[in-house]
């Protein structure tokens, strides 16, 4: 009866001690790093068992991926209040269940050991060639299913994380009707102030140019009646702006500023079309003002949600 070999014994002891420490310690980061050590040691264990390719994949995936992911989760949990007793109330149950699992599995493996021959020829040299061929021929269906599973888990984890993020910063965007109406009431007042600031410094360009740009926008985009009327209103207000500003001043700085609203008009109109008629009538009062950066920003996520709905 030969011994298992010093390397295997040392690796096994290291893995066992590190896993026990990882489960028992109350510090998350130490636990995560100990788990990383366990996975690392297990990778070497696979190599000692004659499967170097699996060992490499293990180290690559678990130490390089899972442990780093766990550290990331730890970092994001830094500002969370500490759970005061680190152990759950089911700790004793866990100890009993764990030892039962170990005993049961060990008994099973002991029985299994009777069927093992004394010396064993490993079925493969552990190179990637045979495994790759096997994956691509005999286990092709499983291979494809696994790839779909990976895609699904990727999308699922992204969806879970995004859902949690969207809820927190803007509770008004929770897609309730009351929140929408509240926002609609709030916006005209907020944007009514903005043009007042803007008008004096505003337009220097020739009026013909501004009206021409408006005219080029208006027929190209088929609009609902409210939108068309409202576009006319904005055009006339712009004409007033232009006259006022010609009276006041004509610096090159303000000229540069004048250009931005005229450019904004086109994408905004296109966006109006996509968001649908309900929203068009809702924010009709606010549309007379120019497309300031704020209104564009606040309209962006809304339109995306409108598409989702």
């Amino acid at each position: 009866m030969s011994s298992p070999g010093v390397l295997v014994v040392v690796l096994a002891a290291l893995a066992l001690v590190a896993s026990l420490y990882a489960v028992r310690t109350r510090y998350v980061l130490r636990s995560v790093l100990s788990f990383g050590l366990v996975f690392f040691v297990l990778g070497f264990m696979y190599m000692a068992l004659g499967q170097p390719f699996v060992g490499l994949v293990q180290i690559l995936l678990y130490v390089g991926g899972v442990a780093v992911l766990a550290v990331f989760a730890f970092i994001s949990s830094l500002n969370v209040k500490e759970t005061e007793p680190a152990m759950a109330p089911t700790s004793e149950v866990g100890a009993i269940a764990g030892s039962l699992t170990t005993l049961l599995l060990a008994a099973t493996f002991y029985e299994l050991g009777r069927f093992l021959p004394a010396t064993i020829e490993p079925p493969t040299d552990g190179s990637a060639v045979g495994i790759g061929t096997l994956l691509m021929t005999r286990h092709l269906l499983e291979f494809e299913i696994i790839s779909i599973l990976l895609l699904a888990s990727l999308v699922a984890s992204l969806a879970i994380i995004r859902h949690g993020r969207r809820e927190k910063p803007q509770p008004a965007a929770a897609a309730s009707v009351s929140a929408e109406t509240r926002e609609a009431e709030a916006r005209p007042t907020a944007e009514a102030e903005r043009p007042r600031k803007k008008r004096p410094i505003g337009p220097v360009r020739e009026t013909g140019d501004a009206s021409a740009s408006e005219a080029s926008v208006a027929p190209s985009v088929p609009q609902t009646t409210t939108e068309a009327g409202e576009a006319k209103a904005s055009a006339s207000s712009e004409a007033e702006n232009a006259q006022e500003a010609r009276k006041s001043s004509s610096t090159s700085k303000s000229r540069a500023r004048r250009e931005t609203p005229a450019e904004n008009a086109k994408p905004r109109d296109a966006k109006k079309k996509s968001t649908g008629s309900a929203r068009g009538t809702r924010s009709a009062s606010s549309r007379g003002s120019e497309g300031t950066r704020r209104s564009r920003r606040s309209r962006g996520p809304e339109s995306a949600q409108g598409d989702e709905r």
Partner: peptide
């Protein structure tokens, strides 16, 4: 590869499973 090495690895896996269930 000896039979004891295999059995040792199997016992280690049993122990690790127990630790996992405990955790």
């Amino acid at each position: 590869m000896s039979r004891e090495t295999i059995l040792f690895a199997l016992y280690l896996s049993a122990a690790l499973a127990g630790v996992g269930v405990y955790g």
